[in-house]
Design a protein around this nucleic acid. Structure first.
Length: 348
DNA sequence: AACGCGTGGGG
DNA sequence: TCCCCAAGCGT
């Protein structure tokens, strides 16, 4: 049987009820696709429901402040997705009369939308026969055809895109694309794929040659960089603190944090209070204490952040403009949000 | 072209 | 514990 027919038959019997499956509205599909980039369905689900409730149309999203959008995105990671989402929402609302572009060629021009997302939206919403290639597709196709080309090499990216396109069922591209991704996510899983009950078992190259565990091939691992963060958690007599936005490139752009002293290794109280940043911040007397006895290692995919939170109590300070009672209004990284939770629970 | 960019779950 | 990795994109 044809690859696409077997796949769609599998999908009929294994259909997932997902909120974004009930619509072809490109705004909702777009939202779901951005949220699910490098993100599991289970993690993205509550965010999708929250966003569609608060922003039922692209105009509502466009009207919001970026900071509001980031606050709602808090905890989902890869925050440039949220910034690009908001940027593109404004563009669609203000320049395109709220009308989502309807072809792959136009969709891929939008910020935050690459080959995968443009193919997904074009096929699901507009029935354009463009094949999606995501992590699931790489895995299924590399195993089924026994392809050892690295999926993150430029040769692999081209090869798999072409192959995916030739396999696509052009009569129902949206259904086919989602079926292939579902099959990868639920059946042809990274670990412990369900080969015993696989509808492709009679023709899967990886199964026949016992290559399932070796495929897909991916080269190079990301190197992890160690960084040492010391946050100065200021608490003034009048219950204020300093929280400021991270600007420029690097992690957590647009999110807020306490004043930060970064060092080459964990440093002690003496080094904190004698640092230039500390002296500039606090001309007057302060009381400083380390909040977490043991360093917190916050792990990003590519950085390990060895973190110490220093609680600094001082008289009222003109630079301390953020009221403690407003602190949860700001978008912050999970590392900071976790600290705030613990700090508040201990001071009550 | 290769690297930077989060977070959480599972083996 | 550690490592992988999950509906990728921008530069």
């Amino acid at each position: 049987m044809k690859f696409s027919n077997t796949l769609i038959y599998w999908q009929l019997q294994n259909n997932r009820e997902l909120p974004w499956r009930k619509t072809k509205n490109p705004y909702f599909i777009w939202l779901s696709e951005i949220m699910l980039q490098q993100t599991r369905v289970a993690q993205g689900m509550s965010y999708y429901l929250k966003f569609t409730a608060q922003f039922p149309s692209v105009f509502d999203l466009a009207k919001a402040d970026e900071s509001t959008v980031l606050k709602m995105w808090q905890g989902l990671g890869y925050y440039s997705r949220a910034r690009n989402l908001h940027f593109t929402a404004k563009q669609i609302a203000n320049e395109l009369n709220g009308e989502f572009p309807s072809t792959y060629k136009e969709i891929i021009k939008l910020k935050g939308i690459g080959d995968y997302t443009a193919s997904a939206i074009a096929s699901i919403c507009f029935d354009e026969p463009t094949a999606v290639v995501d992590g699931n597709v790489y895995r299924v196709l590399s195993r089924y055809f026994g392809i050892k080309t690295a999926i993150n090499s430029s040769a692999g990216i081209k090869e798999f895109k072409i192959l995916a396109q030739t396999l696509l069922d052009e009569s129902k591209p949206g259904t086919y694309n989602q079926a292939l991704m579902d099959f990868g996510a639920l059946h042809c899983k990274p670990q412990n794929p369900l080969c015993e009950t696989c509808p492709f078992a009679d023709s899967c190259v990886a199964l026949e040659r016992k290559l399932t565990k070796e495929l897909p091939v991916k080269d190079k691992k990301v190197k992890v960089r160690n960084r040492y963060f010391n946050f100065l958690v200021i608490k003034t007599d009048d219950n204020k603190t300093i929280l400021s936005e991270r600007k420029g490139k690097g992690i957590w752009q647009g999110l807020y944090q306490f004043p930060l002293i970064e060092s080459d290794t964990n440093i002690d109280k003496d080094e904190i209070v004698s640092s230039e940043k500390f002296i500039n911040l606090f001309p007057d007397e302060t009381t400083i204490s380390l909040f977490n006895e043991k360093e917190i290692i916050h792990k990003l995919s590519h950085q390990h952040l060895h973190t110490q939170f220093w609680v600094v109590e001082t008289a009222s300070l003109s630079k301390a403009k953020t009221k403690w009672k407003d602190i949860k209004k700001y978008p912050v990284p999970v590392l900071i949000a976790n600290f705030i939770e613990e700090f508040e629970s201990k001071s009550n």
